[in-house]
Amino acid sequence: MSNTLLHAEYPVEAEDYTCAGEASADIKRKLKQLGVSANVLRRVAVASYEVELNLVIHSDGGVLSLEVTPDRVRLISKDRGPGIPDLDLAMREGWSTASETARSLGFGAGMGLPNMKRNADEFDIKSKVGEGTTIQMGFLLT
């Protein structure tokens, strides 16, 4: 698209807790350089970190994409599975299927998806068991 100001893709590996958060830190740095306001920057950073952690904790690996146009920041997380059997349950605060490893690091409180939804201006999640999950979030700049 001709009006895309910035596009970046970050592969995120399953259970790679050491690197978890690096993509989000880079996304935040890039958006700051673009002059995105502090309020939007913070909301994108929180949602991005949550979705990146979800890829590490729950998925078989995937890609986190960033796209910036003059009117919005868009984050897209697309994984290779395993998919979420019950989306309503997954969206419920406090519900989590995170591993002990994730919990020992301070995650898996069941706040991730609700927190993404709360911080984003637009939120959409689609999931199919055996195929994977795609989460799209939009943050308005105007």
Binding site: V46, Y49, E50, L105, G106, F107, G108, A109, G110, M111, G112, P114, N115, R118
Partner: peptide, 8 residues
């Protein structure tokens, strides 16, 4: 100690 809560 729950970073998920902190982020929220």
């Amino acid at each position: 100690d729950l970073m998920s809560d902190v982020l929220a």
